[in-house]
Design a protein around this nucleic acid. Structure first.
Length: 545
RNA sequence: GCCCCUGUAGCUCAGUGGAUAGAGCACUGGUUUCCUAAACCAGGUGCCGCAGGUUCAAUUCUUGCCAGGGGCACCA
């Protein structure tokens, strides 16, 4: 909030000095060193070209205007930079607002009516929830929480591919396993699923369904296929729930097909003259929309290519009244991005209203050795395994801590051993510590209901904490504008660090009741900021540890 | 061959068109009669992968190259 104020002041100063409206937001940074004040701007460098004056004289001129502002103790100019020394009253005013807001600090009311739909995970129902999908889950869920907290209307959705080829393959694989279990000769199809989890599943189904023996091959394929899709889907949703990831909507490919939406897409494309037939397959001219080559949407055997029902699904999203779509995909979908945007555009929507976020892969290693995971081949470490090993708080924190765009190396052994060093505990510990101090103060009979005198807070470490706390709303906005949840956990680590440092330097509960109340009030703002922040990434904020 | 991501301290990773590039881990030493030591304090490291270009200013933008990872189906 102080930053915004400085920004406004600069704009006004520039206007009154040179009679120009700044088109750009002046960049304001927190000063790297104390001698450069609290905040700095290098606006004079940016203006120097425009005004044909040297930066230093511009800075000096602006300084004289800015100086008169009662927010600052001092305004300095050093080598073209303008450095602001914010006075203590401004900080007291700022933290006063945080205290007023309490549990709702940084929360915004709904702004506008635009509805955002974020689709993520959408894993195939062919096995348990795996680690890569868990990363998408953590990212997507955190984004939704943060967007909604900051006044957007964002909804989460999971798309189930419960028809099509892979379901067929799953049925065939199950059938083969079923035969093998009964001592018959059978091979799992080449592209089928080989996981041990599937054997366990088929075993339990066949024990509970003796009629299987009376069915013919096709019937068994179908029966086991449908059964397993439902089973694995439920299992996945259950795992995600346990990971504190819930969905507003779950949409099945089957229902998209039943509503004949794929046919609608074909019709629409045909009307727009964007289809042609080649070697019995129907191709969509996606090159007209920037794709590298045209893509088949109906295969020569008459089946739909994956993109067709998916395009239909996006049509469905728009029909349900969403204005802006975000898809979070894994790195294996990167070639798919152009194609999907192309078809979205081709069926009549603004391609800017479909945003595709690609997160990078997760490499699982075990004592340095890479574990290659493949559901089809059957090497799997499931989300449930991970939670059992390191806990959901650590897992969620860890997944969101890395930037969406970077590859994530996850050493299972290390993660298990390093549990105690995991930064999530550092943050949670700060929260628990504050809770403990507050309990202690209550035991000492400090009346916390009485309004404290904040102006007694002026020590270096106190101001340091205040400065950090008031950054929080900006941090959340950064997360949103960059689509980068990792900014939040890193901020929480910094805030915790400032608090621990404060704690070791300054005693909160003392005989001075007035001062105690002021300090308790201060650390309460830290507590609620941590609580809100942790909650936004789906991590618990414990009262005790 | 084409496309995407990455290359910053011993390791894991932040960061920015601007002032002396940062954290954590690891390593060394210190801190508790007192609110949680899962904490704090002190100590030092960098051809910011390489080479051009744009700029008053490049680690940041851009081009080429090198290295690592991934993707390039009438799979989903």
């Amino acid at each position: 909030m102080i930053k915004t104020f400085i920004s406004e002041s600069i704009k006004e100063a520039v206007k009154s000095a040179y009679n120009i409206e700044l088109e750009i937001e002046p960049t304001i940074t927190e000063s790297s060193e104390e001698k450069f004040g609290d905040y700095s701007t290098q606006i004079s460098f940016q203006l120097s070209k425009l005004l044909r004056k040297n930066p230093n004289s511009i800075a000096e001129y602006l300084k004289d205007i800015l100086k008169s502002n009662n927010y600052f103790d001092r305004v300095d100019v050093v080598g073209g930079y303008i450095n602001f020394f914010v006075n203590i009253n401004s900080y007291h005013r700022a933290i006063g607002k945080v205290i007023e807001a309490g549990e709702n600090y940084s929360k915004k009311r709904y702004i506008g009516n635009e509805k955002i739909l974020i689709e993520f995970v959408s894993s195939n129902p062919t096995g348990p929830m795996v680690i890569v999908n868990a990363r998408a889950a953590a990212i997507g869920d955190s984004l939704i929480r943060i967007l909604n907290w900051r006044g957007f209307r964002a909804f989460s959705e999971f798309y189930v591919n419960d028809s099509g080829n892979q379901v067929k393959l799953l049925g065939l694989s199950c059938n083969a396993i079923y035969k093998q279990l009964n001592g018959k000769n059978a091979e799992i199809p080449k592209n089928g699923y080989h996981g041990k989890y599937l054997v366990d599943f088929v075993k339990s189904v066949s024990e509970n369904n003796p009629d299987l023996e009376n069915m013919n091959d096709d019937e068994i394929d179908k029966f086991l296929g449908e059964k397993s899709v439902k089973y694995f889907h439920d299992l996945q949703i259950e795992s995600l729930k346990n990971f504190r990831v819930n969905f507003d909507y779950i949409i099945h490919e089957k229902s998209i097909r039943e509503e004949n939406l794929p046919e609608f897409i074909v019709k629409r494309l045909r009307e727009n003259n964007l289809l042609y037939t080649k070697e019995n397959a129907i191709f969509f001219k996606s090159t007209a929309f920037g794709d590298d080559k045209d893509r088949p949407i109906i295969k020569s055997n008459g089946e739909y290519a994956y993109i067709l029902p998916d395009a239909a699904y996006h049509e469905d999203k728009m029909r349900r009244g969403f204005d802006y779509l975000i898809d979070i995909f894994g790195p294996d979908h990167h070639g798919y991005k152009k194609r999907l945007k192309a078809i979205f555009h081709a069926i009549g929507y603004n391609p800017d209203h479909l945003e595709i976020i690609l997160h990078q892969m997760v490499n699982l290693t075990n004592e340095g050795n890479k574990i290659r995971m493949s559901k089809r081949k059957g090497y799997i470490v499931s989300l449930d395994d991970l939670i059992d090993d390191i806990g959901k708080d650590a897992a969620r924190f860890f997944f969101v801590l890395r930037k969406v765009n970077s590859h994530l190396d996850f050493d299972l052994e290390l993660a298990k051993q390093k549990t105690e060093e995991n930064p999530v505990y550092y943050v949670q510990y700060a929260h628990a510590r504050i809770s403990s101090i507050i309990r202690f103060a209550e035991e000492k009979g400090i009346n916390l209901a009485e309004k404290p005198d904040i102006s007694t807070l002026g020590k270096e470490k106190e101001l340091m904490l205040i400065k950090k706390i008031i950054q929080f709303p900006e941090i959340l906005d950064d997360v949103i504008s960059h689509r980068e949840p990792s900014i939040l956990p890193r901020y929480l680590i910094e805030l915790s660090s400032k608090f621990h440092s404060f704690y070791n330097d300054i005693r909160v509960v003392t005989d001075d009741k007035e001062l105690t109340r002021a300090r308790i009030t201060l650390i309460k703002t830290v507590k609620s900021t941590l609580k809100i922040g942790l909650d936004l990434i789906g991590v618990d904020a414990p009262e005790k540890m």
